[in-house]
Structures are given as C-alpha cells and as structure tokens.
C-alpha cells in the first residue's frame, strides 16, 4: 500500500483526502490489509466461495404493477430537481 494506490482507489470510490490525512489513511489501510493477509494461511483449494449464507436463488415474482408512480415524492427529496428530472451541473457543453 502506497500513496499512489490510495490515490487510485480514492478516485475509484470518489473520495478525496486532505494532504495531512493521506499519510494516516495510507498507514491505516496498510495495517488493515496486513491484518487480512492472514487469510493466506487457509487452504482453500477446491472450496466454492460462499457469497450468501442462504445459498438460495433469488426469488422472482410475476411482473405485475404493485406500486404507483411517486415521481413527485422522490424528486422532492432531491437536492435539486425540476418537474421531471434530478438536476446536476451541466455534463455536456
């Protein structure tokens, strides 16, 4: 773990850190990754990954309308919106 890797993953996660914080976060991540490196000690050859304790396939339901359109309610919750859309700064010039 180095500052460059931290910069890359920070960007992937759309997070930014102050210059004074970068040192600390790099050290923290290094320690945590070192801690989880213990996993290497387990022999996992031929072991299927367990993604979910239930291991059941997700249930589907019939395609029926169950909720009404609540566009206004949801748009009201947005930091910025007009009648139809969430508004963000201009993307295409």
């Amino acid at each position: 773990m180095d500052k460059e890797t931290v910069a890359t993953i920070s960007y992937l996660a759309r997070l930014r850190f102050d210059e004074d914080n970068k040192e600390k976060i790099t050290k923290d991540l290094e320690n945590i990754i070192e801690f989880v490196d213990q996993l290497e000690s387990a022999d996992t050859s031929d072991i299927e990954p367990l993604a979910n304790p239930l291991e059941k396939t997700a249930k589907t339901r019939s395609d029926e309308i169950t909720a009404e359109n609540r566009k206004e309610t949801f748009l009201e919750n947005a930091p910025d919106s007009n009648e139809d859309y969430f508004l963000v700064p201009r993307v295409v010039e």
Partner: peptide
C-alpha cells in the same frame, strides 16, 4: 482478497 475471503467464509460455515 474477496474470493479468498468468501472461500474461508465457506470453511467457517
């Protein structure tokens, strides 16, 4: 990391 952890998760289960 992620796949390995899921495999160990199976071992624990």
């Amino acid at each position: 990391y992620y796949k390995k952890a899921q495999q160990v998760r199976r071992l624990i289960k």
